[in-house]
């Protein structure tokens, strides 16, 4: 191999990469926050005694869990506007799709965490005279959240990486910026290596923190 690495050329576009990082972090945190809300709602609906709510939440979940995120992004950005008769801003489409996607997975994580708590816990709470809400808040959720946390963090790390797909609908995240730099410099090896290093630099601390949290939780059981 006689390839001459030249990071200097690519380095001139550092500001583009940094803007990309900002977008990636914003889309990740934004979609996680909205996803938690959607996931909590869908989870509550799945656990409700009302059939219509359960079915609606189930359809939402399976729709977003059983299609690839890339397909969802393309559909929401290119196909949905035809149905609605208006165009959708690509950034809004990206955030909406990312949020629904991760929300569908969160809903399942929340739900399985809650139903994994022994029925006797709820019964003991109710037998003391607690309302259903009190037994959920005071007794079931504190135990369930502890159980959900590792899967929740794991799903969020995946979400961080998944945001790179929004580049296909021209949202200027890190992946998109890398291809812009490549277009300017004709240096794919350097452009895409820098991008990969940025992802590693951001995700490695997160996965390490996740491992640490999981170990702490297991120790306290």
């Amino acid at each position: 191999m006689t390839y001459h690495w030249d990071f200097h050329v690519v380095g001139q576009y550092l500001d583009l990469f940094l803007w990309g990082v900002v977008y990636t972090v914003l889309y990740t945190t934004g979609s996680i926050v909205i996803g938690v809300v959607l996931g909590a709602l869908a989870c509550a609906a799945r656990l409700s005694s009302w059939m219509v709510l359960r079915a609606t939440a189930r359809v939402f979940q399976e729709l977003f869990r059983c299609t690839p995120l890339l397909v969802q992004l393309l559909w929401v950005y290119y196909a949905l506007p035809l149905l609605l008769g208006t165009s959708i801003d690509n950034r809004a489409a990206a955030l909406l799709t990312l949020s629904c996607y991760v929300g569908a997975f969160y809903a399942e994580i929340f739900r399985s965490g809650i139903v994994s708590i022994d029925r006797g816990q709820r019964e003991a709470a109710l037998a003391l005279g607690m309302s259903r809400g009190q037994s959920m808040r005071r007794i079931v959720l504190p135990q369930a959240i502890k159980r959900m946390l590792p899967s929740f963090i794991n799903q969020s790390v995946i979400q961080f990486k998944n945001t790179s797909l929004v580049s296909v609908i021209s949202v200027a995240d890190l992946a998109y910026m890398a291809s812009v730099v490549n277009g300017q410099t004709y240096r794919p090896l350097e452009s895409y290596t820098v991008m990969a290093l940025f992802y590693i630099a951001m995700l490695l601390p997160l996965t390490q923190a996740a491992d640490y949290v999981e170990k702490r939780l297991r120790a306290s059981d």
Binding site: D118, G120, Q121, E123, A124, A125, A127, L128, G129, M130, Q134, R138, I139, P142, Q143, K146
Partner: peptide, 23 residues
């Protein structure tokens, strides 16, 4: 109950005060 159903995330004392405080 047969299987105690104590709240595992609370100490013995917290288990006992839970009803009086919350309810």
């Amino acid at each position: 109950f047969q299987h105690f159903n104590l709240f595992p995330h609370m100490t013995a004392l917290e288990n006992v005060v839970e009803g009086p405080i919350t309810v």
